[in-house]
């Protein structure tokens, strides 16, 4: 279970502060799938970063009673000057996993071939997404944080993600930020709508989507 209570995040902006999220309350149990909706800059990524522990909330608290992946997004989590293999070794080490066990899955899932021996800074965003997904799937988490990124991949990658996350790991929790109403409708069983700093959980996906479409 993950429980967020009274989550506030503001950033310094000029002389004052810009409030991004003004008190979010949220509980996600095992296996629950939450879609996060909001316009550009509404705070979807910020919320996911806080739940992943990348950035700290200005106020409020987050309890994590299950293992949570790092946010899978366009960037972050990799050292650009190191190769894909070296990044994989590093991540295997810090999560206490045997690198040889995850190497096969990595090569198979990413289909990056020799590119894995090249520095990650030479990768396209789609290639980075493949690497990030492969590693987080190989390590196995109870809850996956996915920021938009599923949609960047090509058909083949999207099919693999679907298979690995929504079929094989049906029992895992998921927080998915997306602009694609279709994706959220297809995979999520509740939705969080963020608008002008306030966020509310809707058990009814269609209601959230209707509100989002009117923003």
């Amino acid at each position: 279970m993950i429980r967020c209570s009274g989550l506030v995040k503001s950033y310094p902006a000029g002389h004052g502060r810009k409030l991004v999220l003004g008190g979010v309350d949220l509980t996600i149990g095992r296996g629950q799938k939450l879609g996060v909706l909001g316009r550009n800059g509404a705070g979807k990524t910020t919320l996911i970063k806080m739940i992943g522990g990348v950035e700290m909330p200005t106020a409020g608290r987050i309890e994590r009673k299950m293992t949570v992946s790092w946010p899978l997004g366009f960037g972050g989590g990799f050292q650009g000057s190191l190769t894909g293999y070296d990044n994989a070794r590093f991540i295997a080490r810090i999560y206490g996993r045997d690198y040889r066990e995850i190497q096969d899955f990595l090569e198979d899932f990413t289909e990056l071939g020799r590119q894995l021996a090249m520095p990650v800074k030479t990768y396209s965003s789609g290639m980075r997404a493949r690497l990030a997904f492969a590693l987080s799937l190989a390590i196995e988490f109870d809850c996956y944080l996915i920021d938009e990124v599923i949609m960047v991949g090509d058909q083949n990658f999207q099919r693999k993600c679907h298979e690995e996350i929504f079929v094989k790991r049906r029992d895992r929790a998921l927080i998915l930020a997306s602009h694609s109403v279709e994706t959220i409708r297809q995979y999520c069983d509740m939705a969080l709508l963020i608008d002008r700093g306030s966020a509310s959980v809707k058990g009814d996906i269609e209601e959230a989507i209707a509100l989002y479409s009117n923003l």
Partner: peptide
Amino acid sequence: SLMYHRQV
């Protein structure tokens, strides 16, 4: 970017 991994 290392802050993506909570144990760091």
